[in-house]
């Protein structure tokens, strides 16, 4: 869906559901997921439908992910850090964990 204009800036290694993903300094969690081609970041607690970042400005709450064990964080507001562990959220089972 997105490509980087230039692969520059220091690389930052994070994991998404245990898989290694290379992000860049200045990425938010949501941007890093989009740049890595990760199609959705959670399923909804009501019907289990897949959702991906929608507004990237802190309004829609569709980019909710678990960051370093803390659930329901707004991925578009959190800058990536080296070694960060990101997990996608699975609807009803662990919504709002």
């Amino acid at each position: 869906m997105f490509k980087r204009l230039a692969e520059k800036g220091p690389a930052i290694a994070i994991t998404v559901d245990g898989r290694k993903v290379t992000a860049r300094v200045g990425d938010t969690v949501a941007a890093a997921l989009l740049a890595a081609g990760i199609d959705h970041c959670r399923t909804t607690p009501v019907t289990g439908a897949p959702r991906a970042p929608y507004c990237l400005m802190g309004v829609c709450f569709d980019c909710l992910v678990t960051v370093d064990g803390v659930g329901s964080r707004q991925g578009c507001l959190i800058p990536v850090r080296e070694g960060m562990k990101v997990e996608t959220q699975l609807g009803r089972r662990e919504a709002g964990r």
Binding site: M1, L5, A31, D39, R51, A52, Y54, M57
Partner: peptide
């Protein structure tokens, strides 16, 4: 409008300004 792959134009602009991400595909 809730499907992954549907975003706001503002979101794409944010990705461009903040991370230098440009639409692909």
């Amino acid at each position: 409008w809730t499907l992954p792959g549907v975003m706001t134009a503002g979101a794409a602009q944010t990705a461009l300004k903040a991370q230098g991400l440009v639409v692909d595909g």
